[in-house]
Design a protein around this nucleic acid. Sequence first.
DNA 1: ACAGCGCGAGAACGACCGTTCTCACGAAGG
DNA 2: CCTTCGTGAGAACGGTCGTTCTCGCGCTGT
Lengths: 215, 215
Amino acid sequence: MDSEVEPDTRVLDAADALFYAHGVQAVGIDRIRDAAGVSLKRLYRCFPSKGDIVEAYLRRRDEISRAALEEHIAGYATPREQLLGMFEWLRAWFLQPGFRGCAFNNAFGELGAGSEAVTEVVRGHKAALRARILSLVEGTGVADPERLAAQIVVLFDGAITVATVTGSPDAALQARDAVAVLLEHGAPAGESGGTGEPGGSRTSGTSGTSGSRDD
Amino acid sequence: MDSEVEPDTRVLDAADALFYAHGVQAVGIDRIRDAAGVSLKRLYRCFPSKGDIVEAYLRRRDEISRAALEEHIAGYATPREQLLGMFEWLRAWFLQPGFRGCAFNNAFGELGAGSEAVTEVVRGHKAALRARILSLVEGTGVADPERLAAQIVVLFDGAITVATVTGSPDAALQARDAVAVLLEHGAPAGESGGTGEPGGSRTSGTSGTSGSRDD
DNA sequence: ACAGCGCGAGAACGACCGTTCTCACGAAGG
DNA sequence: CCTTCGTGAGAACGGTCGTTCTCGCGCTGT
């Protein structure tokens, strides 16, 4: 009952586990071949190059994670609770053994400018997430949905990054609480979000040794 | 005036630019050697292995970015403005040509579990950032500094991730505005931050196909 | 029975990896 | 002067990469 599934699926299953666990560049074709139990010839018939496997790996992760998130938030009644529930979902993900961060962020950081296809899939994944969050935010009847949605996206990705590095799932709840506050008190007292200075009283320059090399 | 600097510095300069632009694994020793204009023998005397170059690369980025951030926020008068000013600093960083995300996140995603030394440097960098943010938050006299600091860290890292993927610096300002709101209205109406449900009314299960493969 | 064909197993290939070794050269010391 | 030693340039090494090629086996049709 293992060798009855389609070879492409077996290859993608193997590639998914290996790419996610060790990174794309660290995993060779032979290793995927071994794990999938597929001949090299068949593997190259399903996917003409390693780049195609990587792209399919990310596209499938995109579909699966979108469906899983959708299924999870379907259990909540209101858009507000769905928005908060997304971070419970994040927490459950962080707790899974073998959690190693966002596959899209990892792939983008690893291949980045090198692969146009990867960039496109990663951008699409993040854009879809943002669109979904925006639709939920609009359902809450808040004053400036675009703005709040952008902030929630930042909290979402930030929670993933923090959880990845620290190894703790707490960031999900911290982010969720921040979302709750932002939902309650939409806009701050003063300015509205442009490039303006926060309060004034800036005294020294930004230049100096901080020129070209940073974080 | 270029060949008068120490060879280690020339090697690190070259490695820094190449590692950050193309990723660690994508850059070979020969390429660093060419860019640094140093003999292979000398390079291996300065750094006995590529892993040592990677570690030194991250350690120097850590020092430089900490100093640059410190220098920037020194221009603000109050802790509150310093916290908000950190996101102006982020925005300036995002706007630099060649910005390709956080070198620590990228290296961690790429090498991850594979390198103990890299993990330690990345964790140290993030922990230092968190400690600095916490010290500033404590200066604002807010009710629960640990909690707000954790949220700001999430917004900080989230802004970096979003800016990296979208290529736009807007995330810095969106995060800054969120920090402003959180500074104004510390705790939400109900619970204080535990694992408790936000409002209740959860109806369906979390299980199903969302088991093992996610974002 | 036999020609033909598709397939799996894995060798082969050229390129590149990180690292080490060779070797000629040039300055320093007696 | 000659010796010695550290150095730079780069060849060499073993290994791995992604990809292609070879070969022999087992099925199919008549």
